[in-house]
Amino acid sequence: MSTVDLHTLTGAYALGALSGQEAAEFESHLARCPACAREVRELRETAARLAVAVAEVPPAQLRTRVMAALPGVRQLPPARREAAVVPPRRRLRHRLPQLAAAACLAAALAAGGLALDARHDAGRQRDSAARAEQRAAALSSLMAAPDAAFHTAALKGGGSATLVASERQGRSALVYDGLPALPDSRVYQLWYSRGGTMVPAGLIAPGGAGGATLLTGTPRGADGVGVTVEPAGGSTAPTGSPLALLPV
């Protein structure tokens, strides 16, 4: 193998993709080529960082599902004849599809380990990301609205909230901070006050002391927004006194 050919094998060597003979020949070259030795070190460090970046803990049921599927996997037949001897460079080219498949398999294992429901998970993640992006865009537009009105109040029991409302957009949002944690059986609920009647306007997602949420419905015709603590899932009418009532 020429020296020029050897210089092109740093990536394959760093990933352990060379055969025994090729690896031995390349290692002999490494001993007298500082440039290739440095490149191999850098490629290995990069591969390690990439592996750590995508590593996830495989699902607990992964091994059971894989073992259960093995009996239905057709096995490859034994080789009937010896493979023809191929020059080293040609062997590397012939192995490229297998190396690519092995790399894809390694990436799949690192990213979650042969999850059989990966397509469903990916779909849910895409939907969740799209909804989050829409909410963020709506909040940004609301905050920048020329007629946006801001009203802040302290909540009984701790925390504070700021109501942002736009008559033109027909939309409002609550920005909150320092909310005390609730038990799983309770949730913060929002209400529009319309002529003394409290109309449900959404729930604050549990698990965070601070954040922002868009209210459902329009603030048009409302004189205030209330915050209460309700049973998990919310209520059709407040079950207790509001922690705060912010003007619209």
Rank of each mutant, 00 (worst) to 15 (best):
E133T: 11
E167C: 02
T64I: 08
A55T: 11
A212P: 03
A14G: 10
L99N: 04
D184A: 15
E25Q: 15
A118V: 08
A68S: 14
Y188H: 10
A31L: 14
P97F: 10
L203V: 04
R41N: 05
L50E: 15
R95T: 04
S140Y: 07
L105R: 13
T216F: 00
G233V: 03
T236L: 13
A83W: 11
A122T: 04
P219N: 03
E82N: 07
C33K: 00
G72N: 09
L243F: 05
S141L: 13
A79Q: 13
F26R: 03
A84Q: 13
V54N: 04
T8P: 01
G113A: 09
L246T: 03
E39D: 14
S241E: 14
T46D: 14
P58Y: 07
A138D: 10
S185I: 02
G208S: 15
G240T: 13
S140M: 06
R119K: 02
A83S: 11
L15K: 14
V187Q: 15
S193C: 09
E39T: 12
A115C: 06
P219I: 03
S141R: 14
A69K: 07
E42T: 11
A165H: 01
P77M: 05
R38M: 10
C36V: 05
T239D: 04
H29R: 07
P71M: 09
G20D: 14
H94V: 06
G224F: 00
A130V: 04
V227I: 15
L96N: 01
L182C: 08
R81C: 11
P247H: 11
V73F: 09
A148C: 13
P78I: 06
A102D: 15
R95P: 00
V248S: 01
R171L: 15
